[in-house]
Design a protein around this nucleic acid. Structure first.
Length: 924
RNA sequence: GCGGAUGUGGUGAAAUUGGUAGACACGCUAGAUUUAGGAUCUAGUGCCGCGAGGCGUGGGGGUUCGAGUCCCUUCAUCCGCACCA
């Protein structure tokens, strides 16, 4: 057998689809729309490996299926093209990142085409195209020109704020801002342009601020908190230091509440939702203001447990807290300075690794707001300046950290909630009963919380408050390969450029390095840095997140020069119905995309508040690495089967290229050639083989375990690869790549080919009327396929096809009425082959135009049902009855059955359960 | 520590609302066939047992006529966050 010439077939249909622009969506249509989206890739130089297409195959299947179901389908694929690798390559080689990006994009496109994907070719833009980033800059400018009004929970024009200041001063404004001053209209009018500019800046949604940032000297740029892992950069693994710098920020915190609340509306996994919730980190509590003994300043703390106020025996402030210098006594000064110096210079990494409590007393006291006792104020780095107010009321009896601290420094512990064992640990439950607590004694802690807050509000000592872990996001990078910031400065005041000047095109520079003075690469852009008409340009570029924060709005209308997106088109297409991508973007990208969407909604550019209705995180396909053992002392390589478990630590594991390994045996000659090393010693086993071990881990070039889809396509074809990847298991799950079982799918496709064609390639399809049995099997298969696709369980569709193929073979059925719909339902999975089958059956149109058949419930209904009959929970025999027989009749028939009589032996059963269509259970 | 997920044969995995656990595929075993190749076809394959039969969805307990599925508890693995007040 085997004239399944997949190479020829696949080439033919890929050319056909391309030539006919088969996958271009109608911009607007009376048809219902379906918008399915992949997280667009960064086009890296390495090209795709077999792990990448997993999600793309899934979305491709959905896209083709939905089209056959009568939807107008948009399945776009563009490129997230700004980013570090191209720039670092440019630093090394001098090749312009645009050139590298262009080359890599073409390679990606070829590979995707090879896999037969349904991607709208009009959407293949790059975020680095000026026509695209024009709108990235445009949104940024809008953020610069808006502030967030907390009263109506909406972004508003900054000019409206100015007008308000002009008329009434700062009174009556409730905004998301760090500005805490107040002024009258008269005062405002008297301010200099710089003073006004500074105040307005503190309100803008895109604003600059002098902040402590994660400065990464190795990369020459600042990084977002999330881009830093254990004190090192996530990319490149360079050390990161804390440094005070002026940076662009986006006021995402203004949206924290909405970002949190709207999670409820989304069909996202609990895992991602909880990661987002965690990141926003909302907590409800109270802020309480303490007087400080002998000083005018007050100390404000945030707590989630105001109920424990009477257990408060000391205060702790972060080492950076400004109050320290005011309250620190002369006697304590030296010790305090020493501690602060140590704590501040301690690396993030050490601080996390070491959870032992450290600290020092300032010498000062705070006054308990309810009972007036003096509470010593301590400094410790277990309190961080960036959360809450950077100061806490310590309640050692009911907070584990305070408990440890109090024990170490021998501070008083007062129990105020009974029920715990304070000799061992703090008692943190809210269900205990309050004691030693004046007016809340006797109630539970949970009940006490609102009463204590109320009390503080009455005496003007505090208020109920909500805090968030989330902080504003740093939105500037001192890099070249990104969107230039559309801002210029004149007399130290920032202005946005005019909309007509967009796009602000990234200028060429002769070197991509930062300048000698540490300024960004754009400082080398010659005259570009001067804004025409006076002033100088901002030299920062935006982070990689910028382009990906809104790209899904551009796909429906990618060539629009007048608007970011035509509102009527946007209304038709958005939101995205299904978004598929990896978990690595669970927090940052998805958070920023949601934030930008909400902002754009506020200013009326888009009609949706949430961009992605349903999100699916595809599990990555892991690589299977091959490792050889090398003796640490002798440097000899030793076959893995010669090494016992205990000896393993005497050897180093070396990743070897998986193509050099067959059946765990390493081609040692090949290895030496590959590593360009000669005379290596390999200790082989008794059979003369050198064994390696396998390990599933991330598929990565550096671990030499990548498998290119090109190789698989050449050997088995794209249809086999697609089906195989879907067959491996549920798309959400992580699984190691194994080529071993691919043959099963390949054989199946060959069988399908043989079902439709003879050896010479002539069609075997016959014209007879299908039998009821044949139709029944067909419709069962359609049903399974439809249900499988609807819940993205592609791994159950393919077995259904396999079973059906066997069934057809058994029935010797090659009837058109059966084989035609069969080709249609399989076509999303193996599109090339099914097109070929479709054509061979005399169709002129592409199989894409064929309607996905609907299963007919009547047809698959059984005439006779075979009930398993249980006696006391065990199946004892089978009972065949008419499908429409009533429960009572089934019961009667079951009891009358000789098999049942055998078990009953004349006794009458206690109970009989008949579940229609399922089972009969007789209980004795 | 907190949060989220996952535990089913030798392997990847199936199993609508609780209703014959292990579909389908890989692998393995036996056989057939061939121009012998890692091709193709047929049969078998959860475990124990010669057998009837018994036991089986990480462990323990519960609800139910009936539990992979629901509840409680415990263990293991993976992921995320982490002195968050």
């Amino acid at each position: 057998m085997g004239n399944y010439n997949f190479q020829q077939i696949e080439k033919k249909w890929q050319k056909y689809w391309k030539g006919n622009r088969s996958f271009v969506a109608e911009k607007k249509s009376d048809l219902p729309k379906y918008y399915v989206l992949d997280m667009f890739p960064y086009p890296s130089g390495a090209g795709l490996h077999v792990g990448h297409p997993l999600g793309y195959i899934a979305t491709d299947i959905i896209a083709r299926y939905k089209r056959q179901k009568g939807f107008n389908v948009l399945h776009p694929m563009g490129y997230d093209a700004f980013g570090l690798p191209a720039e670092q390559y440019a630093l090394k080689t001098g090749i312009h990142p645009a050139e590298t990006t262009q080359k890599n994009t073409v390679r990606y496109q070829e590979q995707m085409e090879m896999l037969g994907f349904y991607h709208d070719p009009d959407t293949a833009f790059r975020t680095s195209d000026p026509d695209y980033y024009k709108w990235t800059q445009w949104v940024f400018m809008k953020m610069f020109n808006h502030w967030y009004d907390k009263k109506i929970e909406k972004a508003r024009l900054i000019t409206e704020l100015e007008a308000h200041f002009e008329a009434e001063g700062s009174k009556g404004i409730v905004a998301a801002t760090a500005y805490s001053g107040s002024f009258t209209a008269e005062e405002w009018k008297g301010y200099s342009p710089k003073e006004k500019g500074d105040i307005l800046m503190a309100y803008r949604i895109a604003y600059t601020d002098q902040i402590t940032v994660n400065w990464c000297p190795g990369l020459g740029t600042v990084l977002a908190d999330a881009e830093v892992k254990d004190g090192r950069s996530e990319r490149g693994n360079f050390p990161v230091e804390r440094k005070l710098m002026k940076q662009w920020m986006l006021r995402i915190t203004a949206y924290s509440d909405r970002l949190l609340a709207d999670l409820e509306k989304l069909e996202w996994s609990d895992a991602v939702k909880s990661m987002q919730k965690n990141w926003i980190g909302r907590s409800e509590g109270a802020s309480i203001v303490y007087d400080v003994d002998g000083v005018d300043d007050q100390l404000e703390v945030f707590t989630t447990r105001p109920d424990t106020i009477y257990g408060n025996t000391f205060m702790v402030v972060a080492p950076e807290h400004p109050i320290i210098e005011k309250i620190c006594t002369v006697e304590q000064k030296e010790e305090v300075d020493k501690y602060i110096d140590w704590a501040v210079n301690r690396s993030e990494r050490d601080r996390i690794a070491d959870t032992k409590k450290t600290g020092v007393w300032t010498g000062g006291y705070a006054i308990h707001p309810l009972n007036g006792t003096k509470l010593p104020i301590w400094i410790s780095d277990y309190v961080v300046i960036t959360y809450g107010t950077g100061a806490i009321m310590a309640v050692p009896a009911h907070d584990q950290r305070d408990f440890e601290f109090a024990h170490k420094f021998d501070i008083r512990i007062i129990e105020v909630i009974s029920g715990g064992d304070l000799s061992k640990e703090a008692y943190i439950s809210k269900d205990g009963i309050m004691v030693n607590s004046d007016f809340v004694n006797g109630m539970t802690a949970r009940e006490a919380i609102p009463l204590v807050v109320k009390k503080f509000e009455e005496i003007g000592r505090g208020t109920g408050r909500v805090t968030y872990k989330q902080r504003d996001v740093v939105w500037s990078r001192q890099r070249y390969w990104g969107e230039p910031t559309p801002i210029y400065y004149k007399d130290e005041v920032a202005y946005s450029i005019d909309e007509s000047e967009l796009p602000l095109v990234l200028p060429d520079v002769e070197s991509y390095k930062p300048s000698e003075t540490g300024e960004p690469p754009l400082s080398r852009a010659g005259d570009w840095v001067n804004y025409p008409g006076g002033g100088t340009r901002d030299l920062n570029t935006m982070p990689g997140w910028a382009g990906s924060s809104w790209y899904f709005f551009r796909y429906p209308d990618p060539f629009n020069e007048q608007e970011l997106v035509d509102p009527s088109i946007e209304k038709y297409w958005l939101p995205v119905d299904l978004y598929v991508g990896g978990t690595e973007h669970a927090v940052l990208h998805l958070m920023y995309a949601r934030f930008w969407t909400k902002f754009m909604y506020d200013i009326g550019v888009v009609s949706v508040e949430e961009p992605f209705t349903k999100l699916v995180n595809q599990g990555k396909i892991q690589g299977v690495s091959k490792l050889a053992f090398r003796d640490n002392e002798s440097g000899e390589f030793v076959s893995a089967d010669l090494i016992s478990e205990e000896e393993k630590d005497k050897y180093t594991e070396i990743h070897v290229n998986i193509s050099l390994v067959q059946d765990h045996s390493l081609d040692t000659e090949g290895y030496m050639k590959w590593t360009r090393q000669e005379g290596l010693v390999f200790k082989t086993n008794a059979e003369g083989e050198f064994k390696t071990i396998s390990r599933a881990e991330k598929m990565s070039k550096s671990l030499y375990n990548t498998v290119a889809p090109d190789v698989i396509c050449e050997q088995y074809g794209a249809d086999t690869l697609r089906m195989f990847e879907m067959f491996l298991g549920p798309i959400e799950m992580e699984k190691p790549w194994s080529t071993e079982s691919i043959n099963g799918v390949f054989t199946f496709l060959k069988k399908i080919h043989n079902l439709y064609f003879d050896q010479e390639g002539n069609s075997l399809v016959t014209e007879g009327e299908p039998t009821v049995e044949e139709l029944k099997f067909l419709h069962q298969t359609i049903k399974k396929t439809e249900e499988g696709i609807d819940r993205l369980a592609f791994n159950v569709c393919i077995p259904a096809f396999m079973v059906f193929e066997k069934e057809l073979k058994r029935l010797k059925c090659r009837k058109r009425a059966i084989l035609e719909p069969f080709a249609v339902i399989m076509s999303p999975f193996a599109p090339h082959m099914c097109e070929e089958l479709w054509e061979s059956m005399g169709h002129k149109e592409s199989i894409l135009e064929a309607t996905f058949p609907t299963w007919e419930a009547e047809l698959i209904k059984e005439q006779q049902i075979e009930y398993p009959v249980q006696i006391n929970g065990k199946v004892r025999f089978k009972l065949s009855v008419d499908a429409d027989m009533s429960k009572e009749l089934v019961e009667e028939k079951a009891l009358a059955d000789p098999n049942a009589q055998k078990w009953l032996e004349g006794k009458s059963p206690r109970k009989i359960i008949v579940v229609p269509g399922r089972i009969v259970n007789i209980v004795l």
